[in-house]
Design a protein around this nucleic acid. Structure first.
Length: 204
DNA sequence: TGCCAGGCCCTCTTTAGGGCCTT
């Protein structure tokens, strides 16, 4: 009751910067409704270039796997249909949003969906965590995981469970009946020292 | 030409520097 839907998304890529020619090689996305994951999408993508041994080691995705994968553009067309008009969530959203926008621009699609960032939210909600890497937060909050990291669908699922846990923790800590997407989005920008005041504004 | 990520956020700050996060 009072829960919004959102698509939680994660990319594996050839590197850190689409501006320097990096491309997406895998996308994972899950649709969250209420307190559950209700749909999933995952695909490898052939970026038309070789990936480095660093990326092969980091992700477990190999050049051999990508040769057989559909081209990025083809997968992006399917992704557009999956995310529809839903709000978007990612862990360090500035990273995933820039790759999403770069790959969408190659199919002449403009994203209108708003993003929220689970990393920025977690820095405010879980100030006592050892750090705010996804892997650390999954252990810190004992979230559901099969132990796979740095693969798109696994990371998207863990980010979704983190997202749902943050909403649940905010509700119980501040006595809120519901938490909206705009509130979570604004939370990403609240100075840490002003968190209490921000929450009080949303009470009752 | 030759460089090469970039936004957030803290602090020994704002005429800046550096760690955190993502691959």
């Amino acid at each position: 009751m009072g829960n919004f839907s959102a698509v939680v998304i994660d990319f594996e890529t050839t590197g850190l910067s689409p501006n320097l020619g990096d491309r997406a090689i895998e996308v994972g996305a899950v649709l969250v409704q209420g307190t559950q994951i209700v749909d999933r999408f995952q695909s490898l993508m052939n970026p038309g270039m070789k990936i480095s041994s660093f990326i092969e080691d980091y992700t477990g995705i190999t050049n051999k796997m990508l040769i057989k994968a559909p081209p990025v553009k083809e997968v992006m067309k399917t992704l557009v249909k999956f995310i529809q008009q839903h709000h978007l969530v990612a862990h360090n959203a500035s990273f995933d949003s820039k790759f999403l926008d770069a790959e969408f621009s190659r199919i002449n699609h403009v994203r209108r969906n708003e993003f929220a960032c689970s990393m920025l939210s977690s820095r405010r909600i879980y100030q006592d965590a050892p750090n705010h890497k996804l892997e650390t937060l999954v252990r810190y909050k004992k979230l559901q995981t099969d132990g796979t990291y740095h693969r798109a669908l696994a990371d998207a699922e863990m980010t979704a469970y983190l997202w749902l846990r943050m909403i649940s923790d905010i509700k119980s800590k501040y006595g809120l009946k519901q938490v909206s997407f705009p509130m979570m989005q604004q939370l990403c920008r609240v100075p840490k020292g002003k968190l209490e005041g921000f929450m009080i504004k949303f009470c009752s």
